[in-house]
Design a binder for these strands. Structure first.
Ligand code: FES
Ligand code: FES
Lengths: 131, 131
DNA sequence: GGTTAATGATACCACACGGGTATCATTCTG
DNA sequence: CAGAATGATACCCGTGTGGTATCATTAACC
């Protein structure tokens, strides 16, 4: 059971790096050594962050990426949602069609509670906390 | 990100069934319809639970499985550990060898905190709660 | 305007894992 | 001995994840 995958891990590092850098833009080439990952792979991650509006990108020579919001406005939860898909820990493994117990299912109920508390926790961690 | 997988889900149902049944032993054949899973698959799960000492097994005609402890002594955490491996949400994705920052890493620190609270939650849910 | 340095967009690959089935061996009851 | 149950394995297959490669596009600088 993984809470976060590598994408999220690398993204957290890259963003932390950017937050500390305090430059207008940071290129992948400048980050890759510190982050400790190959250039192409890091680019793919940054592109996803770009699509999600977490960073903005400047193309062309001298370009790179920059944070689109303040570091304390970017949460771990957002990174997880962006890079590993929507965060539903467990809706019933069987579709609601098959499962008659859905409403009454105690296990699902318990897990829903755990889930909501977990989400609150990952939403409370920001890049600022990491930098 | 899945909190529990199907094995755990089915196991929870099967154990709940057994807890309510209150018979000396329950065979897979008796459970499979209620649990909603094929016989062979459920057997594989039960065998793992047996190895883990959560149920005991009686072979031969008239045999089956029975809970080895009281339902309030079997926790969701134990099922998860048994059926999906040890529960470390995230030790550093890179081995400790590569990662120099291990001790200082803020992200790891945050996640460790989240993890311990999550484990406490899954350890608090017992089969008795579900039955 | 051409070269170079950067991102954008895809397409692809290889491996591990999860979910599930099949098969044969073993043990107990009657 | 026959039948009913678990024990132990071995296998399969679809999907997800980590990672690479390639080409297109944009902007700066000489
Ligand atoms: S099994 Fe479907 S909700 Fe519990
Ligand atoms: S990256 Fe290794 S512990 Fe943070």
């Amino acid at each position: 059971m993984k809470l976060i995958n590598r994408d999220v891990d690398y993204a957290a590092r890259a963003l932390t790096f950017m937050a500390r850098a305090n430059k207008p833009t940071v290129s992948v080439a400048q980050m890759q050594e510190q982050v400790g990952v190959s250039g192409p792979f890091l680019r793919k991650i940054m592109q996803k962050l770009h699509k999600a509006g977490i960073v903005h990108a400047v193309k062309g020579k001298g370009g790179g990426f920059a944070m689109a919001r303040n570091p304390d406005k970017v949460t771990l939860k957002q990174l997880m949602e962006t890079l590993q898909g929507p965060l539903r820990l467990n809706d019933c493994v069987f579709g609601e069609k098959i499962c008659q117990r859905h409403a009454a299912c105690v296990l699902r109920h318990k897990i829903a509670g755990i889930e909501s508390r977990l989400l609150a926790e990952v939403a409370a961690v920001t890049i600022k906390d990491l930098a």
